[in-house]
Computed example of a mutant assay.
Amino acid sequence: MPTPQHSVSAAGIVLDASGTRILLIHRRDNGRWEPPGGVLELGETIEDAVIREVEEETGAQVEVERLTGVYKNMRQGIVALVFRCRLLSDPVSQTDEARNVAWMEIDDVPSLMKPAYAARVLDALGDDVHVRAHDGVDLLPDSAISPIHRAHG
């Protein structure tokens, strides 16, 4: 029996200086608001993928700070690694992949995104690393487990 294949993606959560707004893209391919991210390329480190995807989709340069969550789309076999990033340069208003690049209020995230994607943003606001499963739209009930607490010190 062949081993199941998974796709691995990486996304960057970029907050403004006040910590009240997040940098999001309005994707050209599916029309959804999401954090910038995409599939890792062969030979590319995870951190390099985050930096590349954020720049391709927003025009902004970032520095990867820390892992905030691991999310598996159970329907499509996609594992997404989500990282908090620090903004190094200003974004542009649109790119080849994003019809709109904008700073959006964090309070608006639940109404802008499907729950599976809103969780990535909201999970990144705290200090814990979350591990969740979803169906592409909603979190699966058993994925609302306690977050993994990071060691401090």
Rank of each mutant, 00 (worst) to 15 (best):
M1E: 14
P2D: 11
T3Q: 09
V8R: 06
A10P: 00
A10K: 03
I13H: 08
D16H: 05
S18D: 15
G19C: 00
T20E: 14
R21V: 04
I25M: 03
I25R: 02
I25P: 04
H26T: 00
R28A: 10
R28T: 05
R28K: 15
R28P: 10
D29H: 15
D29T: 13
N30T: 12
G31W: 01
G31Q: 12
W33P: 00
P35T: 14
V39Q: 13
V39M: 09
I46R: 14
E47W: 01
I51L: 06
E56S: 08
Q61S: 12
V62D: 00
V64T: 05
R66N: 07
G69D: 09
Y71H: 12
Q76N: 14
Q76K: 15
Q76T: 13
V79P: 05
V79N: 07
L81I: 06
R84Q: 00
C85A: 06
C85S: 05
R86Q: 08
L88W: 07
S89D: 03
D90N: 12
Q94R: 13
Q94K: 13
Q94G: 05
E97A: 11
E97C: 06
R99S: 12
N100Y: 02
A102K: 02
I106S: 07
I106H: 10
D108G: 02
V109N: 10
S111I: 09
L112Y: 11
L112V: 09
L112D: 09
M113W: 12
M113K: 07
M113G: 11
K114G: 03
K114D: 09
P115A: 07
P115S: 08
A116P: 00
A116R: 08
Y117L: 13
A119I: 03
L122N: 04
D123T: 03
A124I: 09
A124D: 01
D128R: 01
G136H: 07
A144F: 13
I145C: 11
I145W: 11
I145H: 14
S146P: 08
S146T: 12
H149N: 08
A151F: 11
H152C: 07
H152F: 03
G153R: 03
